[in-house]
Simulated assay, not measured.
Amino acid sequence: MRDDQTFLYLNAADIAAIDLDPNEAREAVLEAFRAHHEKRIIAKPKLTLEIGPGHSFQTLCSAWEESGFAANKWLGMAPASPSSELPGIHAVIALNDFASGRLVGLLDGNVITAVRTAAMSAAAAQYLALPTSRTLGLIGCGLQARFHIAAMKAVLPGLSEIRAYSRTRRSAEALVQEAQESGWNGTVSDDAETAIRNSDVIVTTVPMSSGLAPFLDPAWLAPGSFLSAVDIARSWQPHDLRRLEILVTDDHAQQHESPPISPELGRIGSFDADLAELASQAKPGRADNEQRAMFIFRGVGLADLAVAARVFAAAEAKSIGQRLIR
């Protein structure tokens, strides 16, 4: 059968088996953001259909001639109870040949999303975290936290201790145990404030749920700390965010097209830089050891494309996945 009549399907197990190196994922994301700054990538802000709190459907698309691909991620999000074993996000990525438009790959989007999100946090940390960072604080202990442990260790090899806090202590204990098996020192914090005050790098991954109220205070961040708000800062009290010395987002246009985080944050120019400006060195990162830096990001399709392209290439090289007929 002619190859143009088939496409490669990669399920979650296939992508996990590829085990993309965190350093490679981070560099792929940075390369894409540099290309975006130089207008070599076409990427649109995500389109969102809001159904209710924590319940939406989204599409993220981008095209990058140099990579040879265009990609579209389609995902659905719905609130999940803390006791549920099911993920709250269900995503798939379609990968098309840039020149012909032909569908060449269909990839499970959940694992790709986890890898690219952690890679984006690590990319920001490369410019905003202190190289001497030793302690990683995790507020939220699900899938995203697990991928962030590896990604942050890769970019900040001095990290050696984890402080974990979760609404359910059981999930924090499980995460710490896994980290200890990988050589980390780890403790479960009884409250979020303790974890944040005693951490050099913080990652918050609090899922959206009905009635969720911001419960984290930016004043808890220690001088010199770096925070990646994977949860779009929904867990953070918004009124004091602009008092932090550095606020960075992934893409100014994406942030501008999304619901504002606070009255001070949302419009073009309300963030000090975006990731494309950091990656291309158009804007400086950290200027001294006392600045508190926060990365608040929505997620853009070009990051999904960058990681999906690397995973697809690795799958073809290793003959992983299943060929399906269109």
Rank of each mutant, 00 (worst) to 15 (best):
F297V: 04
G285S: 11
T6M: 04
S83Y: 14
S270E: 03
A303I: 03
L241H: 08
A125M: 10
G105I: 08
N72K: 10
P45Q: 06
R197N: 10
G54M: 04
V104K: 08
P263M: 13
S160N: 13
G186C: 03
L216G: 00
A114T: 09
R26H: 00
M77E: 11
E264C: 01
L136H: 11
G285K: 07
D274L: 10
M208C: 02
A78I: 12
Y127G: 01
I196L: 03
R116P: 14
S166C: 02
S121N: 14
T132N: 01
A222R: 12
A35W: 09
H252P: 04
R170W: 04
L49C: 11
S166G: 03
F7T: 02
G88V: 10
A253W: 05
L278P: 12
Q58A: 10
P157H: 03
H55Y: 13
L30I: 05
T113V: 06
K39L: 15
A129T: 01
G140K: 09
P259H: 09
G269Y: 10
S270M: 07
I202D: 00
E264I: 04
S171G: 07
G137E: 00
A174E: 15
L159H: 02
V311W: 02
I149W: 01
G68V: 07
P214V: 06
K44A: 14
S160F: 07
Q126C: 09
A282Y: 08
E65G: 06
V230W: 00
I296V: 15
I18K: 00
T59Y: 04
I320N: 13
I93R: 01
A119M: 03
Q255F: 15
C141E: 08
A63T: 14
R163Y: 03
M294Y: 04
I196W: 00
A192W: 00
S225I: 13
K46Y: 02
L60D: 04
V29F: 03
L221C: 12
L103Q: 02
E66I: 13
E161V: 14
H148W: 05
